[in-house]
Amino acid sequence: MVKTVTSFGRSGLSDWLIQRVSGVVIAAYFFFIVGWLVTHESLDYSTWQTLHHMTCMKIFNTVTLLSVVAHAWIGIWAVLTDYITVRLLGPKATALRLVFEISVIGVLVIYALWGLAIVWGV
């Protein structure tokens, strides 16, 4: 059995499930926020701030944010392991892929920390 050390859940089946659950969470958030914005046509700051100040909304924001980060990692991992390969790019591909992977992890960690600061700073 091939052991992958860079996949999110350390197993393809685990990644498969996480990708779907996180996708459904993001979809639910999208429909909620678009529906909310459409029904609040002339939106002002206090209404917007009140929404994001509610604990249930902070939790929804946080769960969605973490879902986005996990979903992005699993997706980008699949793309990188498919295209940045020794077969397509030669012997330096493995090192190059690791550089890309670490860069993406850096960006996603920044997104997570920044997002949490926004969500819980309201």
């Binding site: 992005a72 997706g75 793309v79 997002g115």
Partner: peptide, 13 residues
């Protein structure tokens, strides 16, 4: 579209 959306997160945040 997924790769593009990872970039879009920065704008949205």
């Amino acid at each position: 579209s997924g790769v593009a959306l990872i970039g879009a997160i920065a704008i949205l945040l």
